[in-house]
Structures are given as C-alpha cells and as structure tokens.
Simulated scan of single mutants.
Amino acid sequence: MAPFNMLNTLPPCDPTAAERVDELLSRPGVRIERIVSSGQSSPPGYWYDQAEGEWIVLLSGAAGLRFEHENHTRLLQPGDCVDIPAHYRHRVEWTAPGIATVWLAVFYSSASPWPE
C-alpha cells in the first residue's frame, strides 16, 4: 500500500464550498477521517451531538472550537488535540479563511461518560 501524506493533494481553499472529508480507515469501533476546512464553520445555532467519541488533532491552519457548557471559544493551532466524548455538544465557530485547516479526526465507540 502506498503512503498517504495528510498535507498533500488538498482541495482549493473555497469558503463557499463544503468541507472536504476523506475517510482514511474504518474498522469496528473506530473511523479515521481527514477533514479540510477553509473558512467554514458550523451553521448558526447548530451543535454537534454525536453518538460516538471524537479525538481530533489540528495539523495545519487554525480553528475556534466551542463546547456548549463553556462561555468561550477555544483557539486550536497546529499540534493541538482535543478528545470530545460522545454526546458532548460542540461546534466549530470558525476556521482560518484562505488557508487549509487540516484536521485528523478519530471517531470511536465509547460507553464511558465524560471525566469530571
């Protein structure tokens, strides 16, 4: 199998287009995706409420991530990672316009609650 470079073959930066999502691996209980954003954000008032956990690492660009229970937006820069448990409501407030914001997202099944 040929190697895959996460930062090559990126789509053109177009904030009016949808994010690009490439499924890299899918196995029972885990799915890995590369997500490429360029100025996109969650629709106003929309909160992700996923049935699976999601661990993300930002590989390039920048983004603002907000959790419903927090009154501030977290700034994510390359190398930052966050574990988002299942049903932990969150949204992408913004992604850097004009450049590729590349996420590596690992989705996993989880029965354990959010640690306090």
Rank of each mutant, 00 (worst) to 15 (best):
V21T: 13
E68D: 10
P78M: 05
D14A: 12
Q77C: 04
G98K: 08
L10I: 14
A51V: 06
C13F: 05
A2E: 12
S112W: 04
P113D: 00
A18H: 12
R31N: 10
F67Y: 09
R89G: 04
V92T: 05
L65S: 00
M1L: 14
R34E: 10
F4G: 03
P11G: 09
S112Q: 12
V102M: 02
L65M: 08
A62S: 12
T9Y: 06
P11H: 11
I35R: 07
L7E: 10
W47N: 08
F107T: 04
L25H: 14
T9G: 09
P44E: 13
F67M: 04
P28H: 12
W114E: 08
V30M: 15
E68I: 04
P78D: 08
S60E: 03
D83Y: 04
I35T: 03
S26V: 10
A63C: 09
D22L: 14
G39K: 06
E19M: 12
Y108Q: 10
H69V: 07
L7Y: 14
L24C: 10
I56P: 02
E116Q: 10
L25V: 09
S37G: 02
N5Y: 13
V102C: 06
G45Q: 07
V21R: 15
A18N: 11
V102S: 01
G45H: 10
I99Y: 05
P28D: 12
D49H: 09
W47T: 06
P12H: 08
A62Q: 08
P115E: 08
P43K: 14
H87C: 01
E54N: 07
W103E: 00
A86G: 06
H87A: 06
H90N: 06
L25A: 15
V30C: 15
F4L: 14
V21W: 09
A86L: 04
T73P: 00
G79E: 05
M6T: 09
P12N: 12
P113N: 07
G61H: 02
I99T: 14
S38H: 00
Y88Q: 03
I56C: 04
V82T: 06
Y46L: 13
P115R: 06
P28T: 08
Q50M: 08
S26H: 15
C13L: 12
P78K: 06
M6H: 11
C81Y: 11
S60V: 01
L10K: 04
W94A: 06
